[in-house]
Design a protein around this nucleic acid. Structure first.
Lengths: 214, 214
DNA sequence: GTCTATATTATGATAGAC
DNA sequence: GTCTATCATAATATAGAC
């Protein structure tokens, strides 16, 4: 029998786990799995290094927890959005989803950093990530593109690499923000820069005859 | 006085250095600076781990040698290309340069992997990379865009993030090839996929009235 | 549940044999 | 010039105090 109320103890544990996941996300995103140390993660979270194996057994499972958290945010955002857009025209819906995707990339640069770190080499982690999180996201986008095409929009490329072209174009300024800032002297996260980026992406992927505007 | 001809000895040293740089390039590109170990690099190059500090003093300077090698390839390719295109119309030249850039990204996926690994977080290495290699590349592209605009082409975005949008769109399928293959089941490096990608990028960044083709 | 201390392994760099 | 052996340090994971 614990002396303190179990509720409170559990609460503390949950908070530590959350702090660790959040810290891990940023460390893994910046340095990659091998480059990030559980010490640095624990320090960033403000807890002892041994809290990592205590709460997550291994570094690997902490990494998976960070990935689950990340894609949870993404799903949350887009599921609500899709529900809210029910009944809206396909083209308008697609434009708004792409806009949302850019805004999400700007708000969560860790997402693409995290994936860039894993996608450059084969590993068990990449296979896990693809099966559990990336493929469902990919299928969702593919469905959108099929709807667009069925609606009469011209296919501007194979869904396969259009997916990666869109991701690359939309997220690179945010994923590589430190480089972007050093090279251009601009802050990619500034509101006017984000707005301009949204417009650029939309004009590239949804070209329209002059004058028309949705 | 060495017993063997100095020429031959030096030759061996040069070869070992080259093997190490090549191996380092791939290891750093896949795992990042912190994730790559000098042991793995040496093993990949087929030499002893101690050959790294012998030839390059530190891991850091091996990393810089790899970066110099990488951007040397890029410069070599584009300087020759620009000379060969002297006198060609601005728009045609720009299209050909973009096409070349995509082909280079497909032929050397390590280039963007290497930069993705460093561009996601602030570090002395990133500052060095920006000043020595990235900024000159950036200025070159910016010059091309200025020429295009002076020629009457509509500006499709600020050069600042258009640069990153182009890089992201052109290179992501190759930089993330392992992920691309797992998700789509396709080989992004296959000739027909590369050709399709070139066409996709050109159609996005050089939209033209139907019927016209350069 | 969290911390300090520690065991074990892996890393970057050095010394000495050949 | 390159390799084997080794040192010092930093890594992950475990054990025990509180």
């Amino acid at each position: 029998m614990p002396e303190r109320p179990p509720r409170r103890l559990q609460q503390r544990s949950v908070e530590t786990r959350e702090k660790l996941v959040e810290a891990a996300l940023h460390e893994f995103a910046e340095k990659g799995f091998g480059g990030a140390s559980t010490r640095a993660i624990a320090t960033r979270a403000g807890v002892a290094q041994s809290a990592v194996p205590y709460h997550f057994e291994t570094k690997d499972s902490l990494w998976k927890a960070a990935a689950d958290h990340l894609f949870g945010l993404l799903r949350e955002r887009f599921q609500a959005r899709v529900v809210g857009l029910d009944g809206v025209g396909v083209r308008t819906k697609s434009r708004l989803l792409v806009r949302d995707f850019v805004l999400f990339a700007a708000a969560h640069p860790e997402l693409h950093r995290f994936m860039l770190q894993e996608g450059t080499g084969r590993s068990e982690r990449l296979e896990w990530l693809v099966e559990k999180h990336i493929r469902p996201t990919f299928e969702f986008l593919r469905g959108q593109m099929d709807e667009l095409e069925a609606d009469g929009a011209p296919a501007i490329g194979r869904p396969d690499h259009l997916h990666y072209v869109l991701i690359g174009a939309a997220s690179t300024p945010y994923a590589l923000a430190p480089e972007f800032e050093l090279v251009t002297g601009e802050d990619p996260f500034a509101k006017e820069m984000v707005d301009a980026h949204v417009e650029l992406i939309l004009s590239l992927f949804f070209p329209e005859p002059r004058g028309e505007r949705q």
